[in-house]
């Protein structure tokens, strides 16, 4: 017995260190790699200067455009995405996998390619884009264009996360509700939705955060009005790195806030 436990112990060590310690050190390096640049960003600009630049009209305009468009995008994605997520979770159709593939496609597609794809439909030369523009609702270089780009890239998050949340709701509870005389819609509203709510909230948060950071497709579809990521790019190209800092910090703070939401009211999808 003694020899066996000795061999067992020797396997958990590396160069005399316990394996868990080794794991912690290796993981620690990665964590430092995440955190150090963030800290460095805050240190590279004096706090006073950041606060002063926050009231800059380009910063305020970009922040307004981003918050507004990301809110609209997250809403649109939720309105259309929740029914789809419910269908994906509950349907026994053999098409669910194919439909799920379509949903996930924008996630794996490079955003700039997404932008090009959208331009072929909504661009000023394409029929829909042309019609909309002549009706006074241009779909490029407009808030509508920003929302189209963000929704394309960010909406899969709410569909995929809400699908998992719906799947986590015990079907027996839905059977019970219907057996008590309640139809599909009443059952979904009173039983499935409330029980799936933390997961749905997580999906909406992820979609909002992704929409806030959307750059590639937005660049192609709607350079104006500038969202925060586009403004960072413009400031960096035209005026240099220093001028890109304030908006970057603002975006960073919004990301941290989204994380906070995921860890409180919403179900953290990674836990």
């Amino acid at each position: 017995m003694a020899t066996r436990s000795d061999t067992a112990r020797s396997r958990t060590t590396l160069f005399g260190f316990d394996w868990l310690t080794v794991a912690l050190v290796l993981g620690g390096v990665l964590c430092l790699y995440y955190l150090a640049p963030l800290v460095s960003l805050f240190l590279s600009v004096p706090p006073g200067e950041i606060l002063a630049r926050m009231t800059d009209s380009t910063v305020v305009d970009a922040a307004t455009t981003s918050l507004l468009s990301a809110s609209i995008s997250a809403t649109v994605a939720t309105v259309f995405g929740l029914p789809l997520a419910y269908w994906l979770a509950r349907s026994e159709s053999r098409w669910t996998n194919a439909v799920l593939g379509v949903v996930v496609l924008p996630l794996v597609l490079p955003p700039t390619v997404g932008g090009i794809v959208l331009l072929t439909v909504f661009g000023p030369g394409a029929p829909i884009g042309k019609a909309a523009a002549s009706a006074g609702v241009p779909l490029t270089r407009s808030l509508a264009g920003v929302v189209l780009a963000q929704t394309f890239v960010a909406s899969p998050f709410v569909v995929v996360t809400a699908k998992a949340a719906f799947e986590g709701v015990d079907r027996t509870l839905e059977h019970a509700s219907r057996s008590l005389g309640k139809g599909r819609w009443t059952t979904a509203r009173n039983v499935t939705l409330p029980l799936a709510m933390p997961g749905i909230a997580a999906g909406v948060t992820l979609t909002f955060a992704r929409a806030m950071g959307e750059f590639g497709a937005t660049m192609m579809l709607s350079y104006y009005p500038r969202t925060m990521p586009v403004q960072i790019w413009v400031s960096f190209i035209e005026l240099g790195l220093d001028n890109a800092y304030p908006i970057a910090i603002l975006l960073l703070l919004i990301s941290v806030a989204a994380l906070a939401v995921l860890n409180t009211v919403a179900a953290n999808p990674w836990q």
């Binding site: 059977h175 019970a176 509700s177 219907r178 057996s179 008590l180 005389g181 139809g183 009173n190």
Partner: peptide
């Protein structure tokens, strides 16, 4: 007919109470 339009009510093994 769908379950809700039958007048039959099912009691489940573990109760299937709505936990929320």
């Amino acid at each position: 007919r769908p379950p809700e339009k039958r007048g039959t009510v099912l009691v489940f093994q573990d109760g299937a109470l709505f936990p929320h």
